[in-house]
Design a binder for these strands. Structure first.
Lengths: 216, 216
DNA sequence: TAGATTGTTAATCGATTAACAATC
DNA sequence: TAGATTGTTAATCGATTAACAATC
């Protein structure tokens, strides 16, 4: 499980880069908090936990924070990422140009369908059977799983076997992995359903309130 | 903010459908828990909170649970969803065929680039300026925001203005919205960075352990 | 100095887990 | 009945918030 404070640190980093690009050299917990949508205390607490220190009067030096956070997130090197499954999501990720700015690189894609192997020229695409070999050759640690539900666990196992330690899973399956492998699930459908629930809930509430008023 | 129990209810639902398709009529909290990766107590607690009740000996009747959960999630009607931005992600979502099984329907897409307007024939695609009009006509409540960062807040405002109550945001921006509008952010890059952090952390730990052993 | 801001400690809140009575 | 399972209440855990001393 990924702790929330690390997720926020990642957000802070993006925000700091933005402010640095705007020409700022220093920043207050208050400003950062506003931008991310948390309390200033939360920001200070997070920084404190990762030993990121500021100046009692002048806030935090952006460059200092970025240096430390970059170290924390191992931003000194480019992290190789492999992608299994070149369906809709897979193709979209191949097209995406934002990885390299974040020191990440899609180094290879894999699919069973040979027709997909050459369609995308941005990264080399291999047959799924070659995945373990390529993972080992590239020494990739992170994999994106965008294959159909039915084969997700199997492909996941192959990834783990070949040394993958973190998996971003788009398949609607709870993957079984060893303890030292982290899985992060993304499900657009689930998120949308949750949003629908929330929106219906608030309208239900409003209707109740209306009825209540009418009764009065 | 979306509560975790609702996210799990959504997962339980998918799992229940799966078991129902396999021919099961009843299920235990233990089974469901295993499948989702939580404790049986968690499952029972969640069910209890939403007033989903079982039988002390025979577990839960799948059909009963599904009926109640479907009502809870308003699965009786098809929910209309609009999509702003037909870049990589937008296009992938248009191609995705899984929405309708979950009683959701992408009813329209929007973009500024007229070249994109006719490229995808699965759903009607309009100019972004027509978005408010179409949202109102369709009475859509949920929107997906997949536009560039620079215009995300602006497009978001237009959505809210036109009556959207839930936004799935793919732009790397913290959207400012009224209280009754729920925003759910998805950032593939952030998730990958978090995975990298986790994987490096465990390897760092192992190296430390090794060193410790050597010293002994 | 006075005021503003950090950083830590304590308090609170919410969510998860444990314990166990109820019961089919 | 005995055993297994639910459902609730209490305990624990973790994360957030509040309070406030330290200090630039």
């Amino acid at each position: 499980m990924i702790k929330k404070n690390i997720q926020r640190i990642i957000q802070y980093r993006m925000c700091l880069l933005k402010f640095q690009n705007l020409g700022f050299e220093r920043i207050f917990s208050y400003t950062l908090a506003q931008e991310i949508g948390v309390s200033p205390e939360q920001v200070r607490k997070d920084f404190s936990q990762f030993n990121l220190r500021g100046n009692k009067k002048a806030g935090y030096k952006i460059q200092d924070l970025l240096d430390k956070i970059n170290e924390l997130l191992h931003k000194e090197d480019i992290h190789k990422i492999i992608l299994a499954g070149l369906g809709n999501i897979g193709k979209a990720l191949v097209q995406y140009k934002g990885f390299i700015n974040r020191n990440m690189q899609l180094v290879a894609g894999f699919d069973i369908d040979p027709a997909k192997l050459k369609k995308n020229c941005r990264i080399p695409v291999f047959h799924i059977d070659d995945m373990p070999k390529v993972i080992r050759e590239e020494k990739a640690r992170i994999g994106i799983l965008a294959v159909p539900e039915q084969v997700a666990q199997e492909v996941c196992n192959q990834m783990v076997e070949a040394g993958i330690k973190g998996i971003l899973n788009f398949a609607p399956v709870m993957l079984k992995t060893p303890e030292d492998v982290t899985v992060q699930n993304i499900s657009v459908c689930n998120e949308l359903e949750a949003l629908i629930y929330m929106s219906e809930k608030t309208t239900d509430k409003k209707e109740k309130e209306k009825k209540g008023k009418k009764r009065k």
